[in-house]
Nucleic acid binder design. Structure first.
Lengths: 213, 213
DNA sequence: AGTACAATACCCCAATCGGGCGATTTTTTT
DNA sequence: AAAAAAATCGCCCGATTGGGGTATTGTACT
């Protein structure tokens, strides 16, 4: 039996959600509130497994309340709900630790599904949100290189590039790898040619951005 | 009309997918292949809007093929499909630029939905995948900085640091922001002091790593 | 045996950089 | 109005860099 607490300022919606929960086997509404005042008390009192949180509410809204709940009741899963799915607030909510993000326009059946999914540790979200999250995710992970764009750096060159990325100057690198300063310079020049850059800064930026190190 | 190309080694499945696509108004299977050999040619020939890609295939599998397709046919959306949803391959696929990720066990109706969603720019995925993506996302997103770690760079300094990170040399920066070379140097020197570094490379590395730009 | 490549090393030269110093003028804050 | 911070410009010096050469060695592949 999944215990659901509802935070939703619109009375009609609130009652509807409550009805949906109580009308679904395996679900149970343990509380329905119009605001997030005293949220700590409300959670403690109702012991929900899942919190259905409206993101647009008067006073303290869902975004600011979410981190608070996560912090004090880490075992509670939070399912954010909104009428819009194009707001940057969603990122705040997701970063705050919300488990899922659905639209109010989803069908009751889907909503129930979403509640069950967050309870099982999943993260239901709209395709739009998913897509934005993926985009950002890909920014952090990306560039796959095929031979060509691997710039064909030799082991030694990669090693030196890594040291440069570590903030070392060329003389320091020479000492570190027990090679003459001029040799390091030779390698560095070749690195620049291969990376199509003309300075140490540009080289390290490329190295980091494209995860050559 | 959404054109779908199918890559799937199992003949039964392949035919089933083809049937589903062709049996759905608005969808159309423009090609069904058992392997990713000559993928470039196959894509060019069939002109798909969406590629349905099995991640587990003999020979060159979906993971390695995805980045290639993205690279050479950026307008093609790729929907990854697998029997497992707990493999780290999914991350490789997502990072490679896949638009969505679904299970083979999803119903045909859902699959069609997913195809339509990726075509519309969405990113359908299973709740489990979504949850793992969110987790990772949350790890990267909130490096909240407070004054101390902001190094108290002025706007001008940040601007110059950004330009340095862009690979520009100091003389080039001076031209770009219409101030004298010496002024840029003065700013740069102060940036170094504030960041506790002693070279352009070290500065840009720090800038990127700590997201100061 | 010959070729190709990586790694090593050195030379020269002009440009740039890093560090230290001081200075003026806005802008912002107090 | 006074003080603080930010932005601007300049000069000096020595070290480092970027770009151009050339050359030797060892290893790997043919």
């Amino acid at each position: 039996m999944i215990r659901v607490a509802i935070f939703e300022d619109n009375k009609l919606m609130r009652n509807a959600y409550e009805a949906i929960c109580n009308g679904t086997p395996g679900l149970m509404c343990c509380g329905a509130f119009a605001d997030t005042d005293d949220v700590s008390f409300k959670i403690k009192k109702t012991q929900p497994d899942v919190v259905l949180m409206d993101i647009e509410m008067p006073g303290k809204d869902g975004v600011s309340t979410t981190p608070y709940i996560i912090k004090h009741f880490p075992e509670v899963k939070i399912l954010i709900q909104t009428v819009f799915d194009n707001d940057d607030k969603i990122f705040a909510a997701i970063c705050a630790g919300a488990s899922g993000y659905i639209l109010k326009s989803t069908t009751p059946a889907r909503m129930v599904e979403a509640i069950e999914q967050v309870h099982d540790g999943g993260s239901p979200m709209t395709p739009y949100i998913a897509s934005r999250v993926l985009k950002l995710f890909q920014q952090f992970a990306p560039p796959f290189k095929d031979a060509e764009e691997n710039y064909a750096l030799s082991v030694r060159e990669k090693e030196i590039l890594a040291l440069m990325t570590g903030g070392h100057g060329l003389p320091a690198i020479a000492e570190k790898i027990f090679v003459s300063y001029e040799t390091v310079r030779t390698h560095v020049k070749r690195i620049y040619k291969k990376l199509h850059v003309a300075s140490a800064s540009a080289a390290v930026v490329k190295a980091i951005r494209e995860k050559l190190v």
